[in-house]
Nucleic acid binder design. Structure first.
Lengths: 340, 340
DNA sequence: CTGAAAGCGCTTACAG
DNA sequence: CTGAAAGCGCTTACAG
């Protein structure tokens, strides 16, 4: 394999100069720089990552911690992150977060500590205190995206407002009996309900209901899957007094609600109105009203934020203030007034 | 940051021994190994990736080239790969493949050549001759998954059989007028139709039709998206003699067909039968008959294959013969007999 | 089974 | 603007 010394020889300069010319760090005359660049290109020389990292302390690599890789939302965010990093010459190393305790220990105690990355993006997911301590203990810039913790700078949508907007949309359509389906935090959860997404959406829902003078809001628990939404909706819709509208905390849960409605012979929106959250790529197909939270753009923002932190001259300038991300109500055919 | 020499001092051995004890390479007495391990754990020492890579030539990292990260199919395959790599201590670096020529050049000519990874998994996508040459020129083990080229070992489903099985299912239901929707290769494509997935599925479809004595099979071109399927279906269904059944080359295209049918007031399967391919997670929700190709398992297989190649004592033993992946017809409510 | 020492391929003060 | 040399933190023949 061709190394930096061969390029130096061919260009008639020292390896020092080759390094400087190629990296753009340090002063080199324009003529020399150009000659070195062309020589490197001609010889097909590319800097070896490991050597450059060891010598410089910079890996030119960003780690992304992702729960549920195969979920549309996270895959889309990831795509947005990749779109930012690649053009800037950064690679992206993926750290999948599972529910397996052994795998998580390996991730936080070993994988992440190999110093393979310069910075870390953590996508929403529940971390224990211990795990958060490991992340902050890395001494690396960290950007969270919807992470339910205040321990490091995190970009987030105002999820309380999301819950409120979704609920108010249904109220405006004339519904009073509106149920909310979401995940509920286990009592033992390390997450702070103040920051945690499902809790915030639920709070927005409850506030909107209270403002409308409606007591006893109805909540049904489900995990963030189609089937979770389907089961919860079945329970709700077969009760003595089925709601006329359901606000699901994700579009995938809302798909489950639509399935349950179909299985029970209910028409949407004739018998039941349904609204979700996310802006899922298939929501148009299902004619589902939703709150779009632009996940691809969220990924881009997270990518920009980590790059800013990495390239800021001083840590102070990194200025990773938690930023608020936009969202938007997209009205489609799944919401209408209540049945007469 | 704590280094190997501190561990050596604390354990009362040389750094040589620490390295051997922690890596498992080379002989160390069991007692010494255990003592070193405990010392390392107590001090929170983890080997620095860059230093170990530079010294050993092993990066403990696998690269994955992915087109369309946000597509369910690829995200699911990726999840399968990650599930294999993580437990074996390998990290995963993502290389997103876009349509932008500059970005692709950067990927193949620079990013991939930084020697950040020990091996590469290339997910199905069209590569030019030049790009393939760059990949094979890396001198790294490479495993393709559905890659339309014979240049490196590739795991693949027998897509001709997939096309045949899907078509025969519709024939058995009594359909004669069956259309196929898929992507068609541009004339300038670098892909060999012998290997390329859409061509093979189409060939299976045509063969099944011919065997049933049906001339003039009907083909409509579309890209692999919901909207692509929707447009193609519109054209087909509004023609003078609309088909009674449509075989879409992916589930997402099939969703588009379902949408078109709904928009045209056609009932499925009353007026139109529809079958897709993939085993998409939402296919059950759409009640869509499909050919499941188990993408998560495909990812696991690709992960196993690259690990086997990396850990084989000799390149010969790596034995990356192209393997054939399973698929399965899953019959649901979207297919029935033709209208009377 | 264990260790001293060379070396992996770069980057970067330091000096000129 | 340019270069000689030290050093980044490990691994691994080689020798014992």
């Amino acid at each position: 394999m061709i190394g930096i010394d061969e390029v130096a020889r061919a260009a008639g300069v020292s390896t020092t100069t080759v390094s400087r010319a190629l990296s753009g760090r340090g002063r080199v005359s324009e003529a020399t720089r150009e000659r070195v660049r062309q020589t490197a290109e001609r010889l097909g020389y590319v800097v070896t990552a490991a050597a450059a990292t060891l010598a410089s302390g910079r890996a030119q690599n960003v780690g992304v911690v992702v729960p549920l890789l195969d979920r549309w939302f996270f895959a889309t965010v990831l795509d947005g992150i990749a779109a930012q990093l690649a053009p800037r010459g950064y690679d992206l190393t993926l750290y999948a977060l599972t529910d397996d305790p052994a795998q998580r220990r390996g991730l936080f105690e070993t994988s992440l500590r190999r110093r393979r990355v310069d910075g870390l993006i953590v996508l929403s997911g529940l971390l224990t205190d211990d795990e958060v301590a490991h992340v902050t203990g890395l001494g690396l810039p960290v950007v969270g995206l919807g992470v339910p913790r205040g321990d490091f700078p995190s970009l987030r949508v105002d999820d309380t407002a999301v819950g409120r907007v979704a609920t108010e949309h249904l109220l405006q359509r004339g519904h009073r009996d509106i149920a909310h389906i979401s995940e509920s935090l286990p009592a033992t959860s390390p997450a702070d309900p103040e920051f945690e997404i499902p809790s915030r959406r639920r709070r927005g829902y409850e506030a909107a209901m209270a403002d409308a003078g409606i007591r006893a809001p109805r909540f049904a628990e489900a995990d963030f899957t189609i089937d979770g939404g389907r089961r919860a909706a079945h329970a709700l819709l077969r009760s003595a007094e089925p709601p006329t509208a359901i606000f699901a905390a994700s579009d995938e849960m809302a798909y489950g609600v639509l399935t349950a409605a179909r299985e029970l012979g209910l028409s949407v929106p004739g018998d039941l109105s349904v609204i979700g959250v996310d802006g899922h790529v298939l929501a148009g197909l299902f004619d589902l009203t939703t709150i779009d939270q632009f996940p691809h753009a969220q990924g881009e923002r997270a990518g920009e934020a980590i790059l800013a932190a990495l390239e800021a001259p001083t840590p102070a300038e990194a200025g990773l203030a938690a930023a608020s991300l936009p969202f938007e109500l997209v009205v489609r055919g799944s919401t209408a007034g209540p049945p007469a």
